[in-house]
């Protein structure tokens, strides 16, 4: 099981300094994710979901224990290596989309590929494919301000998926969307997960998202209290 894991988390503890003391956000987490999982870390606010996602995404490091992503221990990475890991293997989807407002839909989706230094033709094909996945080929010249919330999140998904990363980390991706848009987005991500075998990990407490998960990891007070695989 561990050998085929794309992410392995062992005895992970994360403490934050609070005043003169410390707050333990994550306390002895042990988890493993395999390629192609569609998993969610759920739990109430302050349970440690985002902190865990940060550590998996090499945006933060563990106080104790380790998180190994794509064979690399995130705690041992330099900022440069961490940036490279994110650039090469990880995609991020944010609650507030965080598209670059002065760029068009096409340019927003193209941006991660520029960092990978792909050729013009490679970029063009990949961007068009990504926009086709999310059904926005007719909006390539639009700016984010001209799109609806659902469309913006679809652009954000295309941006995360365009480089076909092994892992996509999504922090409350439906929090700003209505029910219909949330379902559309989740169906789209599920389809991409099945077609491209991309591992999706959500941090959420949204029931709409939870309904789609194939694995639900429940966190409470920084501890995994339940880890269940859901058969549909």
């Amino acid at each position: 099981m561990e050998q085929s894991s794309i992410i392995t988390i062992k005895e992970l503890i994360k403490r934050f300094p609070v005043g003169k003391g410390e707050f333990t956000a994550l306390n002895g987490i042990n988890l493993a994710f395999n390629t192609g999982e569609f998993a969610g870390i759920v739990g109430p606010s302050g349970s440690g979901k985002t902190t865990l996602l940060n550590i998996i995404g090499s945006l933060d490091t563990a106080t104790e224990g380790k998180a190994v992503v794509m064979g690399q221990s995130t705690g041992d990475l330099t900022t440069k290596s961490a940036a490279k890991l994110r650039r090469m293997h990880l995609g991020f989807i944010f609650q507030t989309y965080n598209l670059l407002p002065v760029y068009t839909v096409y340019e927003n989706v193209e941006f991660p590929l520029l960092l990978l230094k792909l050729s013009d033709s490679e970029r063009r094909k990949a961007v068009n494919d990504a926009l086709e996945w999310v059904g926005l080929t007719d909006k390539i010249k639009s700016r984010p301000a001209q799109l609806s919330g659902g469309e913006c999140q679809r652009v954000a998904i295309a941006r995360a998926m365009v480089k076909k990363p092994e892992i996509v980390l999504a922090d409350e991706p439906t929090a700003n969307l209505d029910a219909a848009n949330s379902h559309n987005i989740l169906k789209m991500m599920l389809k991409l997960n099945e077609e491209l075998k991309t591992t999706f990990i959500f941090a959420t407490h949204d029931d709409k998202v939870i309904k789609y998960l194939k694995r639900k990891i429940t966190l409470e007070d920084g501890k995994v209290v339940k880890d269940e695989f859901i058969t549909k």
């Binding site: 490279k84 994110r86 407002p101 941006f111 960092l115």
Partner: peptide, 13 residues
Amino acid sequence: GEIGVRLAIGEEK
């Protein structure tokens, strides 16, 4: 926000 997104996507500081 823009710089944050660029950092998250993997652009080096």
